[in-house]
Design a protein around this nucleic acid. Structure first.
Lengths: 144, 144
DNA sequence: TCTTTTTACTTGATTTTGTCAAGTAATTTA
DNA sequence: TAAATTACTTGACAAAATCAAGTAAAAAGA
């Protein structure tokens, strides 16, 4: 049944992990990027050159909101936005040189925050943690 | 080193799980409570009778913002707020009868959303998922 | 004591963040 | 080639969150 123990334990994990993520996010916010901006930048870094549409396949975000974030990042010269020759409805996004520098900063912040999670674990524990995470990712990899 | 593979894989999991939680949250938002309100209600349910201060020990939230959320929940008669006799600076919060009903609805929504995560898994896979989650929780528990 | 500091909460003003719906233009489909 | 779909933009809002200044009570320090 829906209110089974299993569901409750998953919810307990979700509450727990929501806090884990919230703590990590606190640190990333020190970068002067909003969470949404940071996530968009991370995805552009990973997927570049990519369209806004492509980003929306990966993170849940309103189309108009994303459009404005992209506009802002272009205005600040952290990304470039060039109309695709192949399909003129889309614009290809890439980090600019300055964006690459920003990402190094952001990346270092996120790495440090994440490292804080595991610094007290032994090598074995860390390995186990990772395996568990990857296992969960495989089990839930649904792409809702 | 801080930018090790391990940190990167943990970050990949965090990105992934951020989306999982976002998908579940979408459903909870159908309750007409904001995420912040839902979390506050959830903590009041767990901790009642409790002060706003007590809630702030558990969730990361601005004091003024919380004060307004409490005000709104009182106005809608989902919680009661009674000045403490022992310490007149604080107010004890509890779910009202109507709040209890709301929480049952909220709970059912959250259960259904969570069930959606696992409905396609076999019993064995679900069991493994849960074990992985509990293992992660145990490994990271000292923090956050 | 009393007076200074800390704690709990509130409120006004504002900013930031996110949503909705309507609109343009390019591409695909029937 | 008309209709539908896709990619993106924009204006108008609404919701969410922050900041700082304020009140009142309690605790701590002299």
């Amino acid at each position: 049944m829906i209110s089974s123990n299993i569901v409750h334990e998953i919810r307990a994990f979700n509450r727990f992990y929501t806090n884990v993520i919230a703590v990590l996010d606190q640190d990333v916010l020190k970068s002067n990027f909003s969470l949404a901006e940071a996530r968009v930048l991370f995805e552009i870094e990973r997927l570049q050159p990519c369209s806004a549409r492509k980003i929306m396949e990966v993170i849940i975000i309103d189309e108009g909101y994303l459009s404005r974030i992209v506009k802002k990042l272009v205005a600040k010269n952290y990304i470039t936005k060039i109309r695709s020759d192949h399909d003129k409805r889309l614009y290809l996004l890439k980090l600019s040189a300055s964006g690459v520098r920003q990402m190094r900063r952001l990346d270092e912040l996120a790495n440090q925050a994440t490292f804080g999670l595991i610094e007290r674990l032994t090598a074995d524990q860390t390995k186990t943690l990772l395996e568990n995470m990857q296992h969960i990712q495989n089990l839930l990899n649904f792409k809702t």
